[in-house]
Every structure is written in C-alpha cells, then in structure tokens.
Nucleic acid binder design. Structure first.
Lengths: 362, 362
DNA sequence: TTGTAGGCGTTATCAA
DNA sequence: TTGATAACGCCTACAA
C-alpha cells in the first residue's frame, strides 16, 4: 500500500521495525523454514509497510549469482526473433531472471562485443539462438565456461546443450500435403548451403520427396539467399524451366513472398497455377496475398526449451552431458496451396520409407 | 590474450600482481588522473594478463548506480518496435548501460509486473515507448521517482521528459504528395481515437488537407482499429461511398495492407485506381504488393532521443524541467501512390497556410 | 530458532 | 600520488 520515495529501504530497517535481526529478515525473504511463524509474520508486515525489496546487487555480490541470462539472436529486426525473445523473457522473468538480449547482426565483431558484455555482467547462462553456426562465438563462450544452449550445432563443451530442430517433421508434412493435392513436380528454394540449418532443410526436402516415391531432381532445387530477392531469383529460375514445377517449397517465408511477387508479375496464379509453401511462419506469412501455407517452427518451444536447458545445466550439474533436446516443426495450411489441375492423377502417399510408385509426367 | 576459466579475478589480485594497492587499481580502471603513469601502466598490464573485469555488482552496490535502463514497449512482436529496441540497446550498450526490455502487451497487469522488476533491479531510468497513454503506468514510475521519458504524453513529474512526435510533418508531406499527383478526394483511415497518438494523426491530416484548400469531410475520415481487419473495414467503407476517394491515407501500415487486400479483391488497382499511404514504415511496407508509400517515424531517432533525454535527466539535474524533445516524421515514396486519371486538373499546392483554390469534383 | 559477525568486490575517505 | 580501511546491502557460518 504505502509508497516510498527515492532511497529503497534496507533489510536493517525491516529488522528494526519487526524487532528481529537482519539474519531473520534474510531467512524470511529467502523462505527458509527455520523461522518462527509469528516472527515471520511480523517480518512480512514490516516488509510490506516499508515496501522493502532486497537489493539484487548486494544479493548477487554475496551469492555469486547474477540471476541474469544472455540471449543471442541473429537480428532483433528479423521478424523470426521477436517472438522468441518475448517468450524467453517471459519465462525467464517468471523465474526471477533478467535477460540481456543481443544480436550478431551477422557481424563477428558486433557479436563478440556483446559476449564481452555478457561476461562482464556475469550472466549465468547464454542461449545462442542463431541459425548460422558461428562456432567462433560458441568457442568464445566456452572459453568463459558459461553454460550454453545452442541450436543445431552441438559442441563438446561440458556445460552445453543443443536444441535439435526437427526440420524433417514439418517439411515432410509439407511435401505430403502437396502430394495429396496432386503435385508431382515439387521444387525447393533453399538458403545458402554453408549454413547447417539450410542444408538440413534441403536434405529433409529430398528425403521427404523420395519417401513418396518421387525423384529429387537437381534442377528442382535452387540454392539462393534467404531474402526477398532470393525468392525472386528462385521463382524466375523455376518459371523458366522446360518442365515447370507445380509447387515450390521455400526454406524461408520471406523467400516465399519474393517467389509470389514474381509469380504475380508473370500472371501465374497462386495457388491455382502454382502452390507455394514457406518456412518459419513469421507474421508476414499471414498477411501475404494469398496467406501463406508454411512450416512453423515454434519460437515458444525454442525459448522454453532453451531456458529449461540452461536451468538444467546450472542446477543438476547434468548427469547426461551433451544431451540434445528435440524441437518439432509443423505445417500450417493457409491459402497458398491447392490442387493443381495439370497434376491430378493420384499418387500413393506413404509415411514409411518403403517403395512407392513414381510416375512420369505426361 | 590470456584466457582464464571460471572464477573471475578480483581487483586484489591485480593489485598484488602490479605491486600496488586495490585503491590504485580502482583509480586506474576508473580513469582518475591522479595516478603515476608508470604505475598505471603496470596496472593495465596486470589487468590484461589476468583478464580482469571489474565486478559490476560490487560496483553497483557501492556506487548506488546499476547502469541499467528500462525500456517499455507495447509488444515486442509488433514490427514497429524491434528496430527501436535494437537502436536503444545499441546506444545504451555503447555507454555501458544494460537495458531491460519489457512489454505491456496492452495489459495493465503485465506491465505492472515489469515495472516492479525494473524497480527491483534499481534501473536508473525508464523509456516508456508505447503509444497508448498508459498514464497509470507513468504514475507508477513517477511514484518510484525513477527518471522517465515518454512519447507524446507529458507528465508534470520533475524527472521526466516527453518526446513529441511531429506527426504533422510527415502527414503534411503525404497529403501534398497526393495533391501534386492530382488527388482531391483524399480519405483517412485512423486508429481508435481515445489514443492521443491517433487523435494527433487525424488532426494532422485534417490540418494538412485544409492547408491545401480542400475540405476534410467527416465521411472521408474513418475511425477503426490499427489492424489488418481495421484496414479491410475502412476500405469497404470508402469503396461503398457515393463519391469514392481516390486516395487513402492510413494511420498505420498494417491497416494499409488490409486496405490493399480489399482493393485487390474488388479489382481496384493500386495505384492506378487508388493511391494508398501508410504510417510507420515497418518492414511489411517494403514487401507489400505494391510496395507501400508511407510516413516513416524513425525508430532510431526515437531511441537516440530517449536515451539522451534519460542521460540528461540523470546527470545535469535538468535546469529546464518538463522539456519536450521533437521527433520528426517524413514521407517515404514507394509504389502505392500515383497520378489518378479521374482527378487530373491542377491544384495549387502551397506550404503556407494561406488560401488555396478548392474545386468541385466534376 | 535466533543473533552476531565476517565477507562478497568495489569505491571513497582519510592519512601519510 | 598512494595506501589502509570503512562503507555498500545482503547472506551464512557459527554461537547462543
């Protein structure tokens, strides 16, 4: 109820008011059982009246725990990340942790500076939520011996955990979804292959296509940039092929939007003439025209798992080191995919890896 | 060069190694002039060799300064904010401040919790970068007597500064841009008027329209939500009017995208049949089809001014209290605006507020 | 169950 | 200019 001004009160004042020692106040605020109920109540009242809040700096100093976590993303302005940041901060906040958010901006120096600040502030753990394997960065963190969780790329450092994204899950759903709609010429527009995540997405695609008995032709796989322009290039490539694909899976939503722009310019209707699928499920996907069918990678899952992993490492000293945590992906069907007239005759859909009938296109 | 592991070194170790006292080490790290050059050099060497980094918690404890700032936004996932957050963190980081980022999520309780955490962590200032006048929140902050900077809504608190966004600047540019293109029936799709920012945008529009000698008819002003759906509603409203506008200015980019969706569905070409202008200049604007002409409110300006204001309050005790800082807006012309065939005959464009010739539409 | 007192790593005050 | 040393606010043996 009461509002103090300026100088926050100290435990000593609380102690005085409650007629106990500061030690008892400390015990109460830390929930140690060994406090007489009556005293505890008096202390809580004093705390309430004074609006006392323990000084986290003093706490950190004596306990050696900063109750601060680091979160490193690629760019805050990349629409994939805000939701991840939000989720991570929420769960961290609920557990009384603050989080320092920083970005690599795809720039090693920029990232290094941030990591330096993390170390200075004595963070208790860092979540490296970037999709480029910045192994130098990981090394830097490892050298500081700070608990770490990363995506896809595992390290052999003792206090680190990796989040393994199951790209295959969602991409397989995407391919099967298209197959059910009658598509047999399915193309893939991927990102730069040096990056592990893109390689895995591509491989998941190839795997998925084969598993329904289709071939994964080289010409139907385009390697470009994960950008709008990358999408336009991919679209042009596929459109100019002798045998046009009837569907394009992009390894990123923004590429898909680029693809759709070119299709629109060339008067190729989506989804009438061409189905398009994205990856990530950023906001943009929903507002695209038409709304984009896409593979969702849940930022909430990523964040929660990252936080929990960090807690695990810090607390239980990890009996099972180098443990990997799986994070799923799943298809979100919107309006950019549909039946394709020219590719109607049935395909046998199957989930196992046994043989399926591949057919020639007429 | 050298990498330590685990336990960071303390100033005492540095002192020992350099053969000085901890006091001298402190003087060196804080750049106090009164240190012998030779000694200082020895200290720096020791610092380097040990990889010593001052413990910020201890520093904060004794200095009473947390070197932490708070940043409150509406939602991190709203594409307007990430750039603002990024800029704010960058400039703060460069000045050795950390920042705690939180969101209201348009939910008072959620915001209150965040503010509580800010107070607990003893932030030295808070930037309230939200566009709804959450005056309760401001009061909460004021009660804690923490330096504060807010947008649009000024308080009479001693240690607070307001950032006055000059909506009129960009909106006037937008209206004049349309006028030059021959538009005379210009409509405005605004957000909920209870919010000061929306009111100001609308008033800026009315002012701008009048200043070029046109009337601002009630029917040409739509009040809706700052959402995609809000845009669709606005578009329907305007499309169904007896005298259709030839251009629509939206007080938000996402509305503009909603407007364009309906236009596309009704086969109204943008910009051929209808020009559309947004507000904010979020990423989405660039990727819209066609790319959206919009009024940009610079997040970088906002962030920089907010940070500087906070510094000002904290340091110089502000000789001029309740000072307001102006932040400009400006038109970014892309492809959603153009000449309108049916509205060709010239308008006299003028920048001053003198009379202009208004003409009847034929 | 409670209180006393030492220490966490710095900075700031005072002598020297 | 430098060095002891007392804070800063809290936690945690250890004693009572």
């Amino acid at each position: 109820m009461s509002k103090r001004v300026a100088a926050p009160s100290r435990s000593e004042e609380v102690a005085k008011r409650a007629g106990v020692s500061v030690a008892t106040v400390s015990r109460v605020t830390n929930g140690l059982a060994s406090v007489d109920k009556k005293l505890a109540k008096r202390v809580w009242e004093a705390i309430e009246e004074l609006g006392y809040v323990p000084n986290p700096q003093a706490r950190a100093l004596v306990s050696g725990r900063s109750r601060t976590l680091g979160l490193l993303v690629s760019e805050i302005t990349n629409p994939f990340f805000p939701e991840l940041i939000q989720s991570f901060e929420d769960i961290a906040g609920k557990n009384d942790f603050e989080v320092m958010v920083g970005s690599t901006n795809y720039n090693y120096e920029h990232a290094r500076l941030f990591i330096k600040r993390l170390a200075q502030r004595r963070v208790e753990g860092v979540a490296v939520m970037t999709f480029r394997a910045e192994s130098h960065l990981l090394d830097e963190l490892i050298a500081q011996d700070v608990p770490m969780v990363s995506i896809d790329v595992s390290t052999n450092a003792p206090r680190s955990v990796v989040l393994e994204v199951d790209y295959a899950q969602g991409i397989t759903q995407a391919v099967q979804h298209l197959a059910v709609l009658g598509h047999r010429q399915i193309a893939f527009a991927g990102g730069p292959m040096p990056h592990l995540t893109n390689l895995r997405r591509k491989e998941a695609f190839i795997q998925a296509v084969r598993s329904i008995g289709l071939q994964a032709k080289e010409s139907q796989i385009f390697e470009g940039a994960h950008t709008f322009e990358g999408g336009t290039l991919a679209a042009r490539h596929f459109l100019d092929m002798a045998v046009r694909p009837t569907a394009i899976i992009c390894s990123n939503d923004i590429m898909a939007v680029g693809v759709m722009r070119i299709l629109s310019q060339r008067n190729v209707k989506v989804p009438g003439d061409m189905s398009v699928i994205g990856f990530d499920d950023i906001h943009l996907a929903e507002f695209a025209n038409p709304p984009l069918t896409t593979v969702r990678m849940s930022r909430e899952d990523l964040a929660r798992n990252a936080f929990n992993a960090l807690q695990l490492i810090t607390s239980s000293e990890m009996k099972t080191p180098h443990q990997a945590i799986r994070v799923g992906t799943s298809l979100i069907v919107r309006e950019s995919t549909n039946f394709h007239a020219a590719a109607t005759r049935g395909l046998r859909i199957k989930r196992s890896s046994s043989q399926a009938t591949a057919r020639k296109r007429s």
